[in-house]
Computed example of a mutant assay.
Amino acid sequence: MTEVSKITLIGHSGWGPVEEAYEERLTVSAAEVTYRYHPIKATAENVAHRWRYWTDGPALVNAFENLAAVVSTW
């Protein structure tokens, strides 16, 4: 069985004008969660942003292990 070290979810906007189009990426591991939002065409209302949360606490480790167990069964 393969060990899961991180899980990445990638999303893209669908229907709509290019000024509202974007790509987003959420990555989860046992130590951190990162999010990136990248507009296809940046405007004053649709700006790129990102954030990161990291910890060495057991809560994120336990949550990631539970999520990895579900993902590995797909």
Rank of each mutant, 00 (worst) to 15 (best):
I40Q: 10
G57R: 00
E24F: 03
W15D: 15
V61W: 02
I40Y: 10
N66R: 13
V61N: 04
G16A: 05
A63L: 08
G16M: 04
E23A: 07
Y37K: 02
E32V: 01
W51S: 10
V4I: 08
L67P: 03
H12K: 11
L9E: 14
A21Q: 05
A21P: 07
W54E: 14
V70F: 12
R52V: 09
A21S: 11
I7W: 02
N62I: 05
E23R: 03
T43G: 06
A31W: 12
E65S: 06
E32T: 04
V71Q: 09
A30N: 08
E24L: 07
S13I: 07
T43I: 04
G57A: 10
V47E: 12
A68N: 00
A59D: 12
W15Y: 14
V18L: 05
P39Y: 00
V61M: 10
L26W: 04
E45R: 09
R52D: 10
W15M: 15
Y35I: 03
A48T: 00
W15T: 12
E20M: 12
A59F: 11
Y35N: 07
P17A: 11
N62K: 10
T8H: 10
A48S: 07
V18A: 08
E3T: 15
A44T: 12
T34H: 02
S5L: 13
P58S: 14
N46I: 00
W51A: 05
V47D: 04
A44L: 09
V70D: 08
L60S: 04
V61T: 14
N62E: 11
F64S: 02
V33H: 01
A63F: 06
T34G: 05
S29Y: 02
L60K: 00
W74M: 15
G11P: 04
S29D: 00
H49R: 08
A30G: 11
T43A: 00
N66E: 15
W51T: 03
V47K: 13
S5V: 13
W15R: 11
L67V: 01
R52T: 11
S13E: 02
A48Y: 06
S13Q: 00
H38N: 14
F64A: 06
H38Q: 09
W51E: 07
S72R: 09
D56S: 11
